Computed example of a mutant assay.
Amino acid sequence: MSHFDNETSVSPLDLIADGEAIVIVDVRKPAARTISGLRIPGSTWRHPFDAANWADAFTGRRVAVYCVHGHEVSRAVRGFLEDCGVKARLIEGGFEAWRDAGLPVEPVGMQDD
């Protein structure tokens, strides 16, 4: 069983080690995303306050969401996705923990939207 199955969050290193297909969704607010200029490779950006209009696109998929620090924004989106029946986890510590772990990042705009 992966770390993904029974938790509401997953560490960046456990996410990488999981090995199963997981969609990574960047739910940082637009300004925070623009200021950073970076993203987790392969992630897709969705506006965090518009989840009602995009949640259905992830039905039947395993999703990991991240914001800047893994606090309010990603927790709210994760909860909303779970309420919609999407198996969702937040990345512990958000984008900053990912980057601090030395995991790869790439510029925003690399076929992400």
Rank of each mutant, 00 (worst) to 15 (best):
C84I: 01
R61G: 01
V27I: 12
G94Q: 09
V23Y: 14
R61S: 12
E20Q: 12
D5I: 05
A32N: 14
I16C: 11
V10A: 03
R61C: 00
E82T: 13
V10M: 00
G109D: 09
F95A: 06
W98K: 08
D100Q: 11
F58W: 13
L13Q: 08
T59M: 08
A57F: 07
G19L: 00
L90T: 03
V65P: 07
E20R: 12
D113G: 10
G93H: 05
W98E: 08
A32F: 10
R99Q: 15
F58V: 05
F49G: 08
N6I: 04
M1E: 11
H3R: 02
V108C: 13
R89D: 06
C67N: 00
T59Y: 08
G70Y: 10
R46L: 01
R39N: 07
G102S: 04
E82R: 14
E106L: 02
D56L: 06
S2D: 12
F4T: 00
A101F: 08
G70L: 10
W98T: 02
L103M: 03
T34I: 12
D5H: 10
V25Q: 07
V68N: 14
C84P: 02
S11G: 10
G70H: 06
L38A: 12
K87Y: 04
T34R: 15
R99M: 09
F49H: 09
R75A: 11
I35H: 09
A51D: 12
P104W: 07
C84A: 14
R28L: 05
G70C: 07
I40E: 08
I91M: 06
E82V: 15
T34N: 11
H47Y: 10
A55H: 11
I40D: 01
D56T: 09
D5S: 01
I35A: 14
S36I: 03
T59Q: 14
W54H: 12
R75C: 11
R89S: 11
K29N: 02
F80W: 13
A88E: 06
N6A: 07
G60L: 13
I35C: 01
V23H: 15
E20T: 03
A97W: 08
V73M: 03
M1Y: 01
G85Y: 11
L90V: 00
A21Y: 03
L13N: 14
I24V: 15
E72W: 00
V86C: 13
D5E: 13
C84H: 12
N53K: 05
A76I: 06
V68R: 12
P12L: 05
G79E: 10
D83C: 03
I91A: 04
T44G: 00
L13Y: 04
L103V: 00
G37R: 04
W98H: 08
F95N: 05
L81Y: 05
D113R: 15
R89K: 15
S2K: 01
K29Q: 02
E72V: 04
R28N: 04
L103P: 13
R78M: 14
R39D: 01
A32R: 11
E92L: 03
V105N: 02
M110E: 06
R61T: 01
D18T: 07
F49L: 12
I16A: 09
R39M: 13
